[in-house]
Write a protein that binds this DNA or RNA. Sequence first.
DNA 1: GTTAGCACTCATAGAAGAGGAGTGCTAACA
DNA 2: TGTTAGCACTCCTCTTCTATGAGTGCTAAC
Lengths: 353, 353
Amino acid sequence: MELNDRKIQILQAIIMNYLETAEPVGSRTISRRLPLGLSSATIRNEMSDLEEMGLIVQPHTSAGRIPSTKGYRLYVDHLVGLAGKPMEQFDALRGLLQKKYVQLDSLMKEMGDILAELTKYTAVVAMPQFRKTTIKRLQLVPLDPYSMILVVVADGNIVRNNVIRTRHPLKVEDTYRMTDILNAHLAGRTVDSVTQEEAALIKKEMQADSTMMEGVWDAISNTLKYAENIDVFTSGATNILNFPEFSDIARARALMEVFHEKDKMLSLVDYDLKDDESMKITIGSENTIEQLKDCSVVTATYKYGGQNIGSISVVGPMRMDYDRVIGTLDYLVKDFQNMFANNEEKEQKESQE
Amino acid sequence: MELNDRKIQILQAIIMNYLETAEPVGSRTISRRLPLGLSSATIRNEMSDLEEMGLIVQPHTSAGRIPSTKGYRLYVDHLVGLAGKPMEQFDALRGLLQKKYVQLDSLMKEMGDILAELTKYTAVVAMPQFRKTTIKRLQLVPLDPYSMILVVVADGNIVRNNVIRTRHPLKVEDTYRMTDILNAHLAGRTVDSVTQEEAALIKKEMQADSTMMEGVWDAISNTLKYAENIDVFTSGATNILNFPEFSDIARARALMEVFHEKDKMLSLVDYDLKDDESMKITIGSENTIEQLKDCSVVTATYKYGGQNIGSISVVGPMRMDYDRVIGTLDYLVKDFQNMFANNEEKEQKESQE
DNA sequence: GTTAGCACTCATAGAAGAGGAGTGCTAACA
DNA sequence: TGTTAGCACTCCTCTTCTATGAGTGCTAAC
């Protein structure tokens, strides 16, 4: 069966109506709503066809139709207008994005909050992957002769730290010399870009400085590897409970649980997109996370140095306002990307004024 | 009216039955359950008295009785046995508490998770108040000539950091010298114990070193003051949704929202107890947080150096198993306190082996 | 002081029925 | 051939009614 223009119009009308009301849509509604001058009977015939094509479904015999996953997919891929660009209410976001930030993590948390507030859905923000961002500086902070803390500052002034133990006692000056060695090799680099040969070189250099430092590099190296852990923040988790489709307590609980499970959230923001893609929409049963089978997820990735290094997602009911969400995310991510890239420069200029 | 022994027994029986079933308790049930050989009619008379005293209430005329806030309060204050000490299932906790930790925050998160798992309620863990814990070391990490990061390591290897900007360009060595000055004064101290005179002294000393450092101390001082912010972790937020009293979606949402609001959580863990108190139980309407009017909160504080510096709470329905929760918390906090106090020593000993 | 007996209350569940939204099908029409 | 009016039919939803039963309070007798 062919999906002609009229069918598409009807499908779109059904979906848009359903997005608003969350109620199954009947033929009469469409007949009145669409300016085609068609009777409800005609619409009924068309709807029957659309159902056969798997684009809409009937909850029960005498009910109207609701879009299926496949129907949403078609809508999202071809019918969404991408019209919903920045509006008045974007003020908060715009203000945020023009702000010079001090530390990226607090900014991103705030960004998530505003995004959730704006969309009324749940926002999931993934921090830049640590191992893909540039290290600004490393610093060993001595605590006592046998332990110190490795502090790594990455782009965006994101700070990671880890305790490191030594077998031989070290003096404060030792840690400073080691710090110098580390920075000489690693500052301005990404963890990913450090080869095994280089690592061996650093180790050798440190041991040349003092035999006491045996084993210290291994600990540092482990810390850096371990630091590939991604941070994710979830904002507005409870927003999603406002929608009637989650008024069932069991379903609501399942959702809340998912938002608290870090593993699941990580798999959600998994942004293994090709670097030319920038947005991914996952609808209902397309989701790999069982508990999100009734949800849709819109994920936008942000780039740095041509690579995807992080993502921002919106989780909502399947009948989310895709148009608006896509528009918002698109706008947000583009501006955020620029800001992220430019912030460092700005900082320095301003200090010099 | 006098609350004689028999009335107390009946009240206790009612509460215990209600804790199990979440259903109003009738006179016949008590008559059968209590080995007093009293008929249901007699129990009815007593129940009528208990109701008059405000200890139990009737949801509607022909229903059994449920405990009132006042009834729970009496139960908690006088009737709870404190019997529920460590059981087999405490293995996880015990294991955790014997573990030597590297950084306290991850341990406390884990502790919250296990506590939530164990009690089936929601656990709220408040980290030690930063300004009351001892500073192990401060370190200025230079980023570029005009900015650096102040890293503060406190007891438990808790790391806080904040970006600091300068008006005059600084060299790496400058930051190291400043670091030395800071540590000379502040290492081994709590923020709270630093007087204004001392602060002035430090400022003077820094400026003596270099006029470039004008204003830097102020930034550092602000950071330390700001650091009084308490961290709270909530674990098992969704556990509480399992209880029938929260099967109403609106109530469930309100609860979930509360758990996500940091302000509210902070006011929850507010541990302004006298230093000889160690546990506080807040029941139902006694709660100042509106959304927790149907919940009870058991908060245990932990001390360090004779002062309360943090707390661990359990939030559950009013009909929570107080006995078990109190027992668990009591056990947990005591052991945690010891561990927290001893960990530093252990660490050093082990390194030297 | 305790208890059996009894009338009474009221939440709850189920049955029955009305209403209505919406469908599919058929036959007629342009 | 596409469109439409008409109509029977389905089935959800809401309301009403009734039966059930758990539980009470009161009274009178033990």
